[in-house]
């Protein structure tokens, strides 16, 4: 079980919030929270799943170009794999990412679904 490894990323995984890098001008770290909105830049449907993800296959992973500019890798959910398209608007939701066996940690985090409000 790797509780601390998962716990230290709670802000990123639950809220897409991250501490910025302290610079000479701004000595304090600043936390930036993304809106969680973006578009699909690319995607792939995974049929051969690694440990912890077998129960979910096939699942779609995507590169999401966030409205603020940066790109993230995440699963695309709540949609049939055949309907996923490049350019599709998506929004962040919090879902179960993976499990560590029957007694291990269940890791939650961000996935993206087609935008409900466009």
């Amino acid at each position: 079980m790797q509780v601390s490894r998962y716990w230290r990323m709670n802000a990123q995984r639950y809220m897409m919030a991250n501490g910025g890098v302290a610079t000479a001008e701004k000595e304090e770290e600043k936390t930036f929270t993304f809106s969680g909105r973006g578009t699909i830049y690319s995607y792939s449907t995974v049929y051969d799943a690694p440990a912890g993800f077998e129960a979910y296959k096939p699942y779609v992973v995507g590169l999401i170009k966030l409205d603020e500019g940066p790109m993230v890798t995440a699963q695309i959910t709540d949609i049939d794999a055949k309907e996923v398209e490049i350019g599709m608007p998506v929004e962040m939701v919090t879902r179960k990412l993976r499990t560590e066996g029957d007694e291990g940690v269940i890791v939650y985090g961000y996935k993206f679904r087609p935008s409900v409000v466009v």
Partner: peptide, 12 residues
């Protein structure tokens, strides 16, 4: 952590 594998990255 999001279920990505080497083949998935190549797929992207």
């Amino acid at each position: 952590m999001h279920g990505v594998t080497p083949a998935a990255v190549a797929g992207l």
